[in-house]
Structure formats: structure tokens, C-alpha cells
């Protein structure tokens, strides 16, 4: 009897601590709406979706890598590189699919190199991807000769600018990525093995899991999604820039961590990453429309992220 009561109390508490980041998100949304009612207009909500899309897609790739116990510093550079390739191939009358495939393959290639370096070469993920981050940025500059690439076809530019039933196309891509990734992680054998690798790599190996292949594949997924982001990024800004997407990997990592993905691997839920992505986008958007100066924005953004995670972590640690 006593046990049952305790259990109920625990469930309510556990529920709150598990969804705390969601609560924080709602509080921030309400706060911003009170401060600036135009925050909640449909037009601005569309903005938020657009602004969240590319980081969201990157964050989902990053989530695979982090859950499997890795880390990827190279996604920002990969976005720029694949974006440049897409821009070069998206000029004139080339069929659009050419640009898309090139961007995806470029991203996938970088991802596989990362994965092989980490899983086979036994390099620490941080070092390996720091290397590719630098090298791939160089590739982007090389391919574009350091200049922005212009002259994208109208059809290509239209992708990011268009929308379906009021939902911006970018967000449609994000939703598709979210659905596929959540499904893969929760429902497939592969997804469960990603968690097992991150939870205890040695135990996973002893249990007969091909840990090398799993680890390579997570980096490949991150690379592939970075390639997709590059393709969309170029469409959104209508030019290919070799210097674009600087430090996007940090935003992606932030979205994951804020969303409850453990940096030590093995733990993390897709919906958490969705909330994490929305949270940092909403903060940036909200501060912009409040007209807060850039210097303050940096301070506020940093503090909110640390506080959100701190409260979340503290809330959880009470459980033990």
C-alpha cells in the first residue's frame, strides 16, 4: 500500500522532471507572448519553423552520433561544402535532383570518412571531426574559389521559399526527417543497437553487435543530413557561400544537450531534440523581435541554455 502511494508520487515527479525542458519551453513562449504579442502571430510562427528547420535537421543527425557515444564537429563545414556543390549544380537548367544528389553524396562521404576514422582508426571523435571540419571547409573554399556562387535556377530558389498549406517547405523537410529518425531509433533493430553502442560499447560488442558498422553509420547519417541541410541552405539564402554555416555544429549540439541527449551516449529521445531545437530558435527569434541588442542576445542565450539544462539535470538527479 505504502509502496503504491510512493510509486504514484514518484510517477508525477518523474513525469515532471522528464518533461521539464518542455515546461521551460512553454514558459518562455508564454513570457515572450506577454512581452511582445506579435511573437505569436501566424507569420512569426512560420518564421520560427523556417529558422528551426536547418538546425533541426542537423541536430537530428548529431543525435545519432551522440547517442552512439560519438561527437561531430564537422557538420557546419559539411553544410557549406555540400551547399557549394548544390549551388554549382543548381545553376542554369540542370535538373534539380542533380544538385540534391551531389549534396547528399558529399555529406555522406564526409560522414563515412569521419566514421571510419573513429570506428576503425580508433581516433577520438573530437579529433577526427575537428580534422574534417578544417579540411572540408578548405574543400568548400577550393571548389568555390573563395567566392559566393550565384545564379541558382528559379526552381531551386523556390524550394525554400515555397510552402504547402501555409507550412514552409523547409519545415516539411524537417518534419519528414523527424518522423524517419524517430521511427528508426525507436522501432528498428538498428536504432536499438545505436543506443546499445552508446550505453556500453564493449558490452554491445560482446553481445554480438557489429559496433564498427553501427558507429560508421551514425556518422554517415549525420553527414547525409548535413548534406541535405547544405542543399536547403543554398536554396534559402539563394547563394552558395563557402563561409556559410560557421559553428552550426555548436547549435546542433546545443539542441541535443538541451533536449536531454546525454553527452556520454546511450540516452536521448527524439522529441527532446525537437524541443531543444525549438527552444534555441524561439530564444533567438524572440530576442530579435524584442529588439534586444546583439551583445545582450549572446548573454541571454548562453544563460538560458545553461539554466535550462541545469534545472533539468537537477530535477532528474533528485530521483536517485
Amino acid at each position: 500500500m505504502k509502496q503504491d502511494e510512493l510509486k504514484k508520487g514518484k510517477d508525477a515527479k518523474a513525469l515532471l522532471s522528464e518533461y521539464f525542458i518542455f515546461v521551460i519551453f512553454i514558459v518562455i513562449v508564454i513570457g515572450l507572448t506577454i512581452l511582445k504579442p506579435s511573437f505569436i502571430t501566424p507569420k512569426n510562427l512560420v518564421n520560427i519553423l523556417k529558422q528551426a528547420s536547418i538546425n533541426g535537421i542537423l541536430a537530428f543527425g548529431m543525435m545519432f552520433v551522440i547517442i552512439s557515444g560519438g561527437f561531430d564537429m564537422s557538420v557546419g563545414s559539411t553544410v557549406a561544402f555540400s551547399g557549394i556543390l548544390a549551388a554549382l549544380l543548381g545553376q542554369g537548367n540542370n535538373p534539380l535532383v542533380l544538385a540534391l544528389v551531389a549534396a547528399l553524396l558529399a555529406g555522406l562521404g564526409v560522414g563515412i570518412v569521419n566514421g571510419v576514422g573513429v570506428a576503425v582508426g580508433d581516433l577520438p571523435p573530437f579529433i577526427m571531426t575537428l580534422g574534417t571540419m578544417t579540411a572540408v571547409r578548405g574543400l568548400a573554399l577550393l571548389v568555390s574559389n573563395g567566392k559566393p556562387v550565384i545564379g541558382m535556377s528559379e526552381q531551386y530558389k523556390a524550394i525554400a521559399a515555397s510552402s504547402i498549406a501555409g507550412i514552409p517547405m523547409l519545415a516539411v523537410f524537417l518534419v519528414i526527417v523527424i518522423l524517419i529518425c524517430s521511427f528508426v531509433l525507436a522501432k528498428t533493430v538498428y536504432g536499438r543497437r545505436v543506443y546499445a553502442c552508446g550505453g556500453n560499447l564493449q558490452a554491445a560488442r560482446v553481445a554480438g553487435i557489429n559496433t564498427t558498422a553501427i558507429r560508421i553509420s551514425t556518422f554517415a547519417i549525420a553527414g547525409l543530413l548535413a548534406g541535405l541541410s547544405g542543399f536547403l541552405m543554398t536554396s534559402r539564402v539563394t547563394i552558395g557561400q563557402p563561409t556559410a554555416a560557421e559553428s552550426y555544429e555548436m547549435d546542433a549540439i546545443t539542441a541535443c544537450v538541451v533536449g536531454g541527449v546525454s553527452m556520454t551516449g546511450g540516452v536521448g529521445k527524439p522529441w527532446g531534440v525537437v524541443v531543444g531545437t525549438l527552444l534555441i530558435t524561439v530564444i533567438a527569434n524572440g530576442l530579435d523581435i524584442l529588439g534586444v541588442s546583439s551583445h545582450w542576445q549572446k548573454i541571454v542565450k548562453g544563460l538560458i541554455i545553461v539554466l535550462a539544462v541545469l534545472i533539468d539535470v537537477k530535477g532528474k538527479s533528485k530521483k536517485d
Binding site: Y195, G199, N200, A203
Partner: peptide
Amino acid sequence: KFTGLNLRG
């Protein structure tokens, strides 16, 4: 702990 279990799972 080292080779048997995923303690976080």
C-alpha cells in the same frame, strides 16, 4: 559493468 550491461539502458 564493463562488458555485460548497458547500465544506462
